[in-house]
Design a protein around this nucleic acid. Structure first.
Length: 821
RNA sequence: GGGCGAGUGGUGGAAUGGUAUACACGUUGGACUUAAAAUCCAAUGGUCGCAAGGCCGUAAGGGUUCGACUCCCUUCUCGCCCACCA
């Protein structure tokens, strides 16, 4: 009696949609719950990663609905980006039409999974209704100096013909096309996220329900380090250079200084030196190298003596200034002090170029000599060769030296951050136009708020070469200066925004997606926000999640919202693998969810993907696993039919209430309700499903021996309720079959009776010296004395301890006893 | 190089310091069937043994404990993130 999942699933999806079960509004007396999954890029097809992400979310949404929460569960599309533009170039298609078609296809696929979305709240970032507010946020940032333009050496992908954020450069390659990234000097728009670094760091402490791992990754990304900025004078020049160090305790061991080839003072200090020509050549060569070559750790450290000397301010020693390409201009001041005795990288460089090595920290109990060192000593110890600081522990010296340096103005305590400002300019068509105009007389003029949105032109030449198609649309580019007193001919900015901008606040738009006069309706945002549970991939641990936190703080500063962290709880789901590798188009190991739905139905697919692994772990795809889930659903359905069959005969049956088997099944049912409830709360869906399976198995074993229809029917009802978040369509069908006229979504999540869970008797394990030797069945309310007596009377136990002295008798209540002999 | 995490049957995976391998897949056997599929039932870590049962077993080695997959130390392997970061 195979169930017709296709018919069932279509039918219930239609009913949910028609009855508007998932449509919610903010005027409810129920407690609110905002459940959000990361919205997809509309590629046209959902993949298993989406199925996994959204199924995890859907189970929780349905569970919360049944618990009586007012659950907002929205879905939308992160619809700007390069694939649409690439498709436009390749197929001469309009990226707008291409994207909207993809959205339509994807929405249909998502609906086939039976997800509980409030589709009335759907948001697409590529629609002017939405990106108008991107522009609005940009203008607000511009007003406050948080959006600014400057020339910068930027990461440039020659293949995509665009700039990339630091975050988008992975191992020196473009995150999207994987091609090598080069450096290019361009005028670019930046967001001053660094103004928020302190708050972004401090508020990580508020995120107690985020995975530790994500918090750590963000901490590392912000990269706060504390140290001292030290000023070095030149031997024959009035200028000074500053270096930053976290190890000021090693300052007396600084034997040379290294500058980055791009250091602005370098050309000055080599002027007239015999080395000048060689150094200039070195600078030229370094400029040619790509960042990948310069930053790969195993490349030999190239360097050259500049001919100039610096004065170590702590002891007035003259130390040579070197130039090396391993020092980066972008980090710190582009200059470092080198302490070869206590920094391994400096040590290797000093050995290579025969530079002095001076020990200033001795490891406890050792008396190392510089010439004997085979590697740098980076650990703690006592100061030596450090003038008045000799004899202090280096940790103490760190503080004292810093203080002394501040008093004598040779240095200053400083903190240093790794976080850079966020580059948002893209030389692309398919994104939000940056709303500024360049006027020869007025300079950079923001587009007046009333003129928003700046819409993308309907047509543009997509050639794939020579930069942005937007720049070639005359009607877009040529405008009058918005300054009413000027109005002279001006040019529009043709850069568009990085798509991470779009996704940094979409969760707010869901609260009032149709809001016309404002970015969102404040009352709605106050009601729904913050997001109670956010679910998405770990790959967004830094980028999207950091940017969203930044935007939230900014909007909070504008007074638009009254909270400053957007996501209360975060779950990062693991990746879907096939044959041990990440499922991806480029690897060609994709399993199409749509095919699975056709073959097994959405319920079986959902059940399998949750059962195969805990949500946070990676999961290995297995076709046989889906078969297993399908088999289980059929088994549940047969069990329903079996009960209904008993019902037909029920009138003939004697009500055999209270039999032992009934008691056992009753207890198992209550235990399962407890277990499933706790497991869902903890996102342990795999074990939740396993325990439902156990209950069903127990039912099969015992139902033959139970003729109490009323009781069996109750068990069935509970199993269906427990199963409904996981396999909602078949649950609805069976629920109706049981004679319920209302959707199972209107039913209450079952509770359990703690009294009924308790076992009458307990199987005590008897260990002897920690090894399991026997078991005894005893009443659960047995006293320790009684238990001891029973155990010692057990035959096997007697045999094991015969002739031995019992040294200890350990009782672990409800579990085991351990006899030490 | 740094940080985080993980290593359990043939496979995916269970186990508040307390019966290691729940649940499922696969495999094998049985029932049903003319037959097959489906279904239902049973077995299934290794090893020795006719059996009762013993011994070994959670990457390797050590430690703490009456008792360790779980805690601590050392080593190995894999994954992810960061990385000439001063």
């Amino acid at each position: 009696m195979d169930y017709n999942f296709k018919e069932i699933e279509e039918n219930w999806q239609k009913i949910w949609d028609k009855e508007g079960f998932f449509r919610v509004d903010s005027g409810s007396s129920k407690p609110k719950f905002y459940l959000l999954e990361m919205f997809p890029y509309p590629s046209g097809k959902i993949h298993m990663g989406h199925v996994r992400n959204y199924t995890i979310g859907d189970v929780f949404a349905r569970y919360k609905i049944m618990q009586g929460f007012n659950v907002m569960h929205p879905m939308g599309f992160d619809a700007f980006g390069q694939p649409a533009e690439n498709a436009a170039i390749k197929n001469k298609a309009d990226p707008r039409i291409w994207t909207l078609k993809c959205i339509e296809d994807m929405r249909a696929e998502l609906k086939k999974m039976g997800f509980s979305y409030d589709w009335k709240r759907e948001v697409s970032t590529c629609l002017p209704d939405y990106y108008k507010w991107n522009q609005w946020i940009f203008l607000k940032m511009f007003e406050r100096g948080l959006a600014y333009k400057r020339s910068a050496n930027v990461n440039w992908c020659p293949d995509c013909q665009t700039t990339l954020a630091n975050e988008e450069v992975i191992d020196g390659n473009c995150w999207r096309c994987k091609k090598e990234v080069i450096q290019k000097e361009l005028e670019q728009w930046f967001l001053k996220i660094t103004d928020y670094k302190q708050r972004l760091l401090e508020d990580l402490d508020k995120l107690i329900y985020w995975p530790e791992r994500v918090v750590t990754m963000q901490k590392n990304w912000l990269g706060k380090s504390e140290g001292v900025e030290i000023y070095f004078k030149f031997k024959d020049s009035a200028k000074t250079i500053s270096v930053f160090t976290t190890r000021v305790d090693t300052i007396f061991g600084a034997t040379y200084v290294v500058l980055a080839p791009e250091h602005p003072l370098l050309k000055d200090i080599i002027k007239g030196k015999p080395q000048e020509k060689q150094v200039l050549e070195f600078i030229k060569q370094a400029g040619k190298k790509t960042k990948i070559v310069r930053t790969s750790a195993d490349v030999k450290k190239e360097g050259i003596f500049s001919g100039a000397f610096a004065i170590n301010p702590v002891n007035n020693e003259e130390i040579p200034i070197w130039v090396a390409d391993y020092v980066l201009m972008e980090y710190g001041s582009g200059a470092i002090m080198a302490v070869p005795a206590h920094d391994q990288r400096d040590f290797l460089f000093a050995k290579e170029h025969k530079l002095a090595i001076k020990i200033v920290i001795q490891e406890a109990g050792k008396n190392q000599k510089a010439e004997d060192l085979s590697q740098a000593y980076e650990g703690d110890g006592k100061q030596v060769n450090s003038a008045q600081f000799d004899g202090l522990s280096n940790q103490e010296a760190k503080i004292k030296i810093a203080q002394w340096m501040e008093e004598t103005s040779i240095g200053k305590r400083r903190e240093h951050w790794r976080l850079r400002d966020w580059l948002i300019s893209r030389q692309r068509f398919w994104g939000t136009p940056i709303p500024v105009i360049y006027c020869k007389k007025c300079g950079i003029v923001p587009v007046p708020e009333d003129d928003l949105p700046v819409e993308l032109p309907k047509k543009a030449p997509f050639t794939g070469t020579g930069g942005s198609p937007l720049a070639k649309v005359e009607s877009f580019v040529n405008v009058a200066c918005p300054n009413p007193k000027c109005k002279s001919p001006a040019r529009r900015e043709t850069d568009t925004m990085a798509t991470f901008f779009d996704s940094s606040w979409y969760f707010l738009r869901y609260c009032s997606p149709d809001s016309k006069g404002a970015i969102f309706n404040k009352e709605d945002a106050d009601y729904w926000m913050p997001v109670d549970q956010y679910i998405g991939g770990i790959e967004h641990a830094v980028l999207h999640l950091l940017y969203s936190r930044f935007f939230t703080k900014f909007l909070n500063d504008l007074g638009l919202i009254n909270f400053d962290e957007p996501f209360q709880k975060l779950l990062t789901q693991g990746m879907v693998l096939k044959d041990g590798e990440v499922m991806s188009k480029s690897r060609g190991n994709i399993v199409d969810p749509d095919g699975m739905i056709k073959e097994f139905g959405a319920d079986a697919l959902r059940l399998y993907i949750l059962f195969a692994a805990p949500p946070e772990d990676q999961m290995e795809w297995s076709q046989q696993g889906v078969t297993g889930a399908d088999r289980f659903l059929k088994r549940v359905q047969r069990f329903l039919e079996k009960v209904l069959l008993i019902q037909e005969k029920a009138s003939e049956l004697v009500n055999a209430a209270g039999s032992d088997n009934e008691k056992i099944l009753k207890r198992k049912t209550e235990q399962t309700i407890k277990k499933v409830t706790e497991d869902i709360e903890a996102f342990k869906f795999n074990t939740a499903i396993a325990s439902i399976m156990e209950l069903v198995n127990e039912f099969y074993r015992l139902s033959e021996k139970i003729e109490n229809y009323t009781f069996l029917e109750k068990v069935v009802r509970k199993v269906i309720l427990l199963l409904s978040p996981f396999a909602p369509h078949i649950a609805e069908e069976m629920w109706e079959r049981l004679g319920n006229s209302e959707s199972i979504l209107k039913a209450k999540w079952p509770g359990f009776d703690p009294e009924l869970i308790k076992e009458d008797s307990i199987n005590y394990v008897i260990q002897i010296n920690g090894k399991v030797r026997s078991k005894v069945q005893v009443p659960s309310d047995i006293s320790e004395e009684e238990l001891k007596k029973t155990v010692l009377e057990d035959d096997k136990t007697k045999a094991w301890i015969a002739g031995k002295e019992v040294k200890k008798f350990i009782v672990v209540a409800g579990r085991l006893v351990n006899i030490v002999i």
